[in-house]
Design a protein around this nucleic acid. Sequence first.
DNA 1: GAGGATTTATTAATTTTTTATTAAGGAACT
DNA 2: AGTTCCTTAATAAAAAATTAATAAATCCTC
Lengths: 235, 235
Amino acid sequence: MYNILVVDDDKEIVNAIEIYLSQEGYNIIKAYDGEEALEKLKENEIHLIILDIMMPNKDGIETLQEIRKDKTIPVIMLSAKSEDYDKISGLNTGADDYVTKPFNPLELIARVKSNIRRYVDFSNSNISKKNKNERILSTGTLEINDETKQVTVDGKEIKLTATEYNILKFLLENKGKVYSIEQIYENVWNEESYGAENIIAVHIRHIREKIEINPKEPKYLKVIWGIGYKVEDIK
Amino acid sequence: MYNILVVDDDKEIVNAIEIYLSQEGYNIIKAYDGEEALEKLKENEIHLIILDIMMPNKDGIETLQEIRKDKTIPVIMLSAKSEDYDKISGLNTGADDYVTKPFNPLELIARVKSNIRRYVDFSNSNISKKNKNERILSTGTLEINDETKQVTVDGKEIKLTATEYNILKFLLENKGKVYSIEQIYENVWNEESYGAENIIAVHIRHIREKIEINPKEPKYLKVIWGIGYKVEDIK
DNA sequence: GAGGATTTATTAATTTTTTATTAAGGAACT
DNA sequence: AGTTCCTTAATAAAAAATTAATAAATCCTC
């Protein structure tokens, strides 16, 4: 039995989420602003948080920053579509996933499941075991620390932009697997892609310029012609 | 074949949507107000609804609430940009997606596809999870991993192009069975074949060159003279 | 089992598709 | 106001798909 903390100032939304998730066997704890969320978090053992961004008193991003000071539990951010910039800053302050309102109930359930699975089931994740709680993803000498958002190659720190980081993180979380340009776009932007081919190519090039010794012959970020891109799984 | 119910009091918009979506192979059912929409919903098996918010008689939000009383099918709301944002955000709990008018046809198509895919995918997600672990196809020492798109023979990695990979995957998924050139073409290209004999032959040769020790006497990819090709089922 | 017809194989050239690169415009943040 | 970064557009380069022409293999009929 997992406990999920749902935080939104709109009580209707909180109730709706409760209905969907309790049907799936989760136990719901509710809060209506950031302060209340932090209280509930102290009082209960929480396995996942669903956090709205726009809230009075203490907004979702502030709240998330507070949470991240001493917790690594999965956080799914909720945001209205109009506030799409929040996505980026939300993910940069430590969110694991986000969903835009209005949301598809089935999608929310799927994301909750996958985040809990990822968090609880360390055994087949590629988070390094030494530092479970620091959430380090790596392949070869390429490492990213999702807590600090630091990226290093051969121990040398690399500076990536938010979008570059998110693309690399997505591919590194699924290293070895090949994703099409569309899939990458949809996973990183959380939006439908229509004719977004070139955006990905440009970002890929920028990432390669930063993480690869020779961008023309990438060691990490490889293209599978006609299919997509992958991050090589190097032991 | 999916049936899409399009509801808008503006007939021009309904017709425009019909044109876009029927080109994509969807079957369109039309309604011009909320009442009519509910009727059509009873009479037909509908897979997705596109629902305008501002309508006479029964508006989109009321209609949505009615629908949600006993249906969970995906609903995409249509709204003019000028319309009150609160009203739109008020429907947070029921709609799966929304598009503002004037809309980009490609965007609408993309959203329709994604919502149908999500709905279908998530609703049999328990089944598909089982299959996910069986992403490796093999015969003899020939193996392909559809997640990483890696192909190996005797443990040695082989590089195939996208088309070569798709042909091999199709035949390997149905190993032992013989398929005509037309059948292979239609399954791999998803199009009618029209004098495409030689294309297949060329690709077959390329595949053999890569996976066979002696392409002249293929061990895996065999021809059944006058009938077609198969991948041998080797235990 | 020889010859012709049919089907598949092979090779190379051409065309198309896909990805890479470069540069510039513009939005958002400092 | 300056900087950073995302996005778009235009073009180049790379890779692969297709076409065409010819060769070889198999089948069928006599």
